[in-house]
């Protein structure tokens, strides 16, 4: 196969675009997946730790 500038261009313009679309959809699904809600709420509040020592 002739691996030219045009090949790269097509790769970038077509598959690069699809890849970014797929990726962004995946991120949105992850972010708004109902099961993750609890985990995110926990993460928001769990950083306020008073004792400042590692958990064992």
């Amino acid at each position: 196969m002739d691996f030219s500038h045009d090949t790269m261009l097509a790769l970038a313009k077509v598959w690069g675009l699809f890849y970014l679309f797929a990726f962004s959809i995946g991120v949105v699904i992850y972010t708004f997946w109902p099961r993750n809600r609890e985990r995110f709420t926990r993460a928001e509040t769990e950083i306020f730790d008073k004792d400042d020592i590692p958990w064992t």
Binding site: F23, S24, V27, V28, Y30, T31, F32, F40, T41, A43, E44, T45, I47, F48
Partner: peptide, 20 residues
């Protein structure tokens, strides 16, 4: 910021979206 303000981040989900 959350530690100093003693307030959780406004939206954790927004921070994930803006990260990606």
């Amino acid at each position: 910021l959350p530690i100093r303000a003693q307030r959780p981040i406004f939206s954790y989900r927004l921070s994930i979206l803006s990260f990606w």
